[in-house]
Nucleic acid binder design. Structure first.
Length: 802
DNA sequence: GGTTAGGCTTTG
């Protein structure tokens, strides 16, 4: 008998053979002559029996010396003992934590876990016939069977009684030891998992695969209500099942939940939290459980159980890759029945341009605008099919992990994508494809989880969005350093320059007085804004105010707001009312019929298609209808009368062009154009005038940083921007070709590659003038004038005028 | 008393 239970009363020493000498644990070294010595200690840790592939079994225990010799300077020494074969089995059955043992016949090895467990640098290895454990059993406390084994009683009970009064213990089967048709308790490390999905039966189903030190990979199928499914967050999590059924399927053992099963999930990180994730209100974990979890953690740490799909932040995504994303949901919006948009961020900046998906704001749950900085970090995720249903339960602010997300580059056709975005060819979209293959799905992470805490820490660095909420007449200005000038456009001095004035250097320009025009030869160092749509502004020639072009999100919102009042509406006497079919957004999609009003006079002149007043349409529908009519003026019902929409929305659609009015300078009302008779074409000016709208003009505004060998100088390109590029700002707002011209020009003048010194030289005229900023301060400004870019650019590196 | 599914080789 390798494990011997010592008789009561006499004390362990009495029956330990007399030729053996006990030595303190602290004196053990690998060079100890251990042939006739013993060590003694209390079992402070007993690990589960492990079956090795060779059919051998092994068990690890830790004993702590309590009484010999008293050591005042340090903790009582503890040492790892590894038991093999029959000794391990005996020990497993006979000895429990708290028992005092004497070990003999061991060999001494180096402890491989010394750095981790900080225990004795050696371990004791017990195998074969010479090895022996003598044990004094711990008597059970009579009233509190589960209390820690501290109250050692002098009147010791026998071993048998001791075992009988102990609380029932769960035994866990190694995954390599599973036999079919049994109910077992197991521990395992998750190597694959799938989010729960609705089964055809009464439950939700999820499947996962687990492994342990026996290296078996065991599939598990879980049927139960959604909330009872294991809360697995990532591969490597550790799972404890109680009462699961083993089944044979396809020649391998699988685990299936049986009636009354229960499950706990632990973080898989070494040293991680021991708090289990569970919906179960009554569960019990003891020291042995903690030990098992730690062992699985350290074993798994060396097993390369790396997830097939990595968890990566947005700043590290690569196009086409599948990955898991941990993020916060900011807003969501249904796109159609099979697709939902999730707008998320993780506080990092994706190096690739992100696709913007435009939806109507009234269907968006959560904010529709963000600070520019935060807004530029937002990723748009389209989740499809079964995931849209799950997305319905999500709330803005939730922290999510999205599994098997795909980053899709290029101009993928995205629902809700508008024509104005056609330039976004290389922008990344994120798709969560339908189905649950590859573990695809979404999980809400609890607020207290370590990853969420870390995300919150990163996100704290960004300002709150409140101050950026849009209101009716104020748009977010994107380039704060240009804001002053944008609000108060500079007065332009009409001084002509035939490029025949003498060349001067930038440092001379800086020293010159306002009111002059100079001819310079310079290179473009940099410019802003980099995004063309930010360079497009709306300018009122009457009040000289300048504003951003409202984005589609805002305009969509105004359209849907305008269509809310569907009460009776009496058209003006000059109008004929009718209905118009609005084509669906794709072939086969249902048509909508909307109210239109037309000028009786135009009808009589057979010009009915030249101008319609359209009611109740969305922005998208208005754009579609604009293809078939020359002029469309969106209108709404307001207190029973026809009215124009809020002037933040375009008051007129002409083909792909849209026209805006100045809120300050317009007295807008729905009126019949009075000049229709005899006029060849009804254009935006005629309509604006009839409606009392002060037409806003599209303009381009950029800030260029120029350099020559003497200095650098920030100059505006504004009044003569159209002449500079040879395009109309109005066209830039409406079509890709005009946008391309500007992109190509700027790319030639300021290539992404190469140093500034290699940029082409340009001959420009600059005006110098004084302008007031918002606070009434006078400042000197510079503006490019009378200069046109003509290609090819001269690269006269020898023409440097220094 | 006991169904359901049994990863996967990736649409928009």
């Amino acid at each position: 008998m390798p494990v011997r239970v010592l008789s009561e009363g006499a004390g362990p020493g009495a029956q330990v053979p007399a030729h053996l000498t006990r030595i303190p644990i602290s004196l053990i070294t690998t060079s100890t002559d251990f042939s006739n010595i013993t060590v003694k200690g209390k079992v402070v840790q007993k690990c589960p029996l492990v079956t090795l592939a060779s059919d051998n079994v092994i068990l690890k225990t830790v004993i702590q010396e309590e009484d010999f010799p008293p050591n005042s300077s340090s903790q009582n020494p503890s040492i790892n003992i590894i038991l093999f074969g029959a000794l391990a089995k005996d020990f497993n059955q006979t000895v429990n934590q708290g028992d005092v043992v004497v070990a003999s016949g061991f060999t001494v090895g180096k402890s491989p876990t010394v750095h981790k467990d900080k225990l004795h640098p050696c371990n004791l290895l017990l195998s074969g016939d010479n090895a022996c454990i003598y044990v004094t059993l711990l008597p059970p406390p009579l009233l509190h069977p589960r209390s820690p084994p501290t109250a050692k009683r002098s009147s010791a009970l026998s071993a048998e009684v001791s075992r009988a009064t102990k609380a029932p213990k769960y035994t866990y089967v190694r995954l390599g030891d599973l036999k079919p048709g049994t109910i077992v308790n197991v521990y395992g490390v998750v190597v694959f998992f799938k989010q729960p999905f609705k089964s055809r039966g009464t439950d939700f189903c999820s499947s996962l695969k687990i492994t342990d030190q026996s290296n078996q990979k065991i599939g598990c199928t879980i049927f139960c209500q959604l909330e009872d499914h294991p809360k697995i967050f990532q591969i490597g999590d550790i799972i404890r099942f109680h009462r699961v059924k083993t089944q044979s399927f396809n020649n391998s053992i699988t685990l299936v939940t049986s009636f009354g099963f229960s499950v706990l999930v632990f973080d898989g990180a070494e040293g991680g939290s021991m708090e289990p994730r569970t919906s179960s209100r009554s569960f019990h974990i003891d020291q042995e459980d903690r030990q098992t979890v730690e062992e699985l953690r350290s074993w798994a740490a060396n097993q390369a159980l790396v997830p097939s799909v990595p968890i990566i932040p947005l700043c590290a995504v690569s196009p086409k890759a599948y990955f898991d994303l941990t993020c916060q949901l900011l807003a969501k919006a249904p796109i159609d029945t099979t697709c939902t948009l999730l707008r998320v961020w993780d506080g990092t900046r994706c190096p690739h341009a992100l696709l913007n998906v435009i939806v109507e704001p009234n269907v968006t749950e959560g904010p529709t605008s963000f600070s520019q900085e935060k807004g530029s970090l937002i990723a748009n995720i389209l989740v499809y099919d079964n995931h849209t249903e799950f997305a319905r339960q999500l709330k803005p602010g939730d922290f999510l992990r999205i599994y098997n997300l795909r980053a899709i580059p290029g101009s993928s056709k995205v629902p809700g994508l508008t024509s104005s975005q056609s330039e976004e060819v290389d922008h990344l979209a994120f798709h969560l494809h339908g189905g649950t293959a590859y573990g695809r799905g979404i999980r809400v992470l609890p607020e207290n989880s370590p990853v969420v805490k870390e995300l919150k820490r990163v996100m704290k660095a960004f300002p709150e969005d409140d101050e950026y909420e849009l209101n009716d007449d104020e748009y977010e200005l994107n380039d704060e350093d240009m804001l002053d000038i944008w609000c108060t456009p500079p007065e332009f001095l009409e001084i002509s320059c035939g490029h025949d004035t003498q060349l001067v250097t930038l440092s001379e320009v800086k020293r010159s007085d306002p009111g002059r025009v100079h001819h310079v030869r310079v290179q473009l160092r940099t410019y802003e804004p980099r995004r063309l749509h930010q360079a497009l502004k709306l300018y009122c020639s009457k009040c000289t105010s300048m504003q951003d072009v409202p984005d589609d999100e805002l305009v969509s919102g105004l359209f849907s707001e305008a269509s809310k009042d569907s009460g009776p509406c009496s058209p003006p006497p000059w109008a004929l009312s009718g209905r118009v079919d609005v084509p669906g957004d794709s072939p086969g999609s249902p048509k909508r019929t909307l109210s239109v009003h037309m000028s009786t006079q135009l009808m009589s002149e057979d010009k009915s298609k030249e101008l319609i007043f359209l009611m109740g349409s969305t922005l998208e529908e208005t754009r579609r209808i604009a293809a078939g009519y020359q002029n469309i003026v969106p209108v709404m019902s307001s207190a029973g009368h026809l009215a124009l929409l809020d002037l933040s929305a375009p008051f007129l659609f002409r083909g792909r062009k849209t026209y805006y009015g100045c809120k300050r300078c317009s007295e807008a009302a729905v009126r019949e154009p009075s000049c229709a008779e005899g006029v060849e074409m009804i254009d935006e000016k005629i309509i604006a005038e009839a409606l009392g709208v002060q037409l806003l003009q599209f303009v381009l505004l950029m800030k260029l940083q120029l350099q020559d060998t003497t200095d650098t100088l920030d100059v505006f390109l504004w009044r003569d921007a159209e002449a500079f590029f040879g395009v109309l700002a109005e066209d830039v707002a409406a079509n890709q070709e005009a946008q391309n011209i500007i992109h190509q020009t700027m790319d030639s003048l300021c290539p992404a590659e190469g140093s500034t010194g290699e940029h082409p030289w340009m001959d420009l005229c600059l005006t110098v003038y004084r302008a007031e900023d918002d606070e009434g301060r006078n400042q000197t400004c510079y503006q490019i004038c009378h200069s046109t870019v003509t290609k090819p650019f001269s690269t006269q590196s020898n023409a440097n005028p220094a």
